[in-house]
Design a protein around this nucleic acid. Structure first.
Lengths: 180, 180
DNA sequence: GCGCACATGTAATTGGTTACATGATTGA
DNA sequence: TCAATCATGTAACCAATTACATGTGCGC
């Protein structure tokens, strides 16, 4: 697998890379983390995790680490894997991600701890905040002109959208103050 | 396709059924609704919607309605389709849905408007509320005993989880008062 | 007449789900 | 010793993504 090939990891791939970025883990340990923690909505079944680990090995983003017959093999991230993570972290936030993929952005931020410097973190959060602000304004504008024509359930669903984004915005501001 | 066969619609299938439940729509109109509205995170590309419509026709949940050569064909829900929707609406809320699939529950509720009676809607919302309350307590308990051992980003991600669920809880209460 | 949005599809690839399979270890 | 959990996988199926393909109709 050459470096030059374009690798497009899935979200699950990123989540695995994020988990093992500073400590090698066994396949089972990774699986358990997905199952036990509220780590997104990613599947934790063997049929998902093990093929993903195989895929990541094929692309040389993780390495299976066999020390001896008596210790169980662990998966550790490779330098290539770190690069892929860093590329993911520094990718500019897109409008569509803010509007439809909030949880992905949260996942990205959650794994930034040690590989990203403070300045970059703040940039990520402030961009996120600004885009959220814009999006919420759009939603509210639309709501004000259309809510009286919407059925009750439509209105409630729409309100949920606004509320949820406002919560994310508040969180953003909180995170900025805690990082900075 | 016999009724006796077990049909397991995808979320996208449900979303389409929900959209056409009271008004037949063309394939393109459905596609546009997915694209324009913040209707979940479902794909709106032709390669997703048209195969889904085909699938729904195969299962006799929707019917292609060709009136003449001059009006474009529309898709309308069949009695079977209505049954499937109703079964979906009345399915008891599971713990795992509250914990990891909030958006699915919101989608379910959003489409309940005309096919579900008030009592059932209230039951849905109060169950949702109670399960959320329990879940938030669990999260907070865990947070209080583990937050000092968590890295900053882990703590922030965890706080986001709590904040988001609290927002959903508030929305639940608001919805109950507006429905009741 | 050109470009854009309307409008409807198909095909290849691939990741995820579900179910199956297997064996080791540990505690009641 | 029996059950549960640890632990690691495989195989069949299917839905979603991406890219391609095609034609219409409208406005500038």
């Amino acid at each position: 697998m050459k470096n030059s090939e374009i690798i497009k990891p899935t979200l699950l791939d990123y989540a695995i890379l994020g988990l093992i970025q500073d400590k090698a883990l066994s396949g089972y340990a990774i699986r358990k983390l997905f199952e036990d923690t509220s780590l997104g909505n990613y599947s934790s079944s063997p049929g998902t995790i093990y093929p993903a680990l195989k895929r990541l090995q094929k692309f040389e983003l993780v390495k299976k680490n066999i020390q001896s017959k008596f210790t169980k093999p662990c998966f550790e991230i490779t330098p290539n894997g770190v690069l892929i993570l860093q590329k993911w972290f520094s990718k500019p936030i897109e409008k569509i991600e803010v509007e439809k993929k909030t949880s992905e952005l949260l996942l990205r931020f959650a794994f930034m701890e040690s590989l990203v410097n403070k300045k970059q973190k703040i940039l990520f959060l402030t961009t996120f905040r600004d885009l959220l602000n814009m999006y919420i304004k759009e939603l509210q504008t639309y709501y004000h002109e259309a809510s009286d024509k919407m059925p009750l359930h439509g209105r409630l669903a729409f309100q949920y959208g606004i509320d949820a984004n406002k919560t994310t915005l508040k969180w953003c501001k909180k995170a900025i103050s805690q990082i900075g």
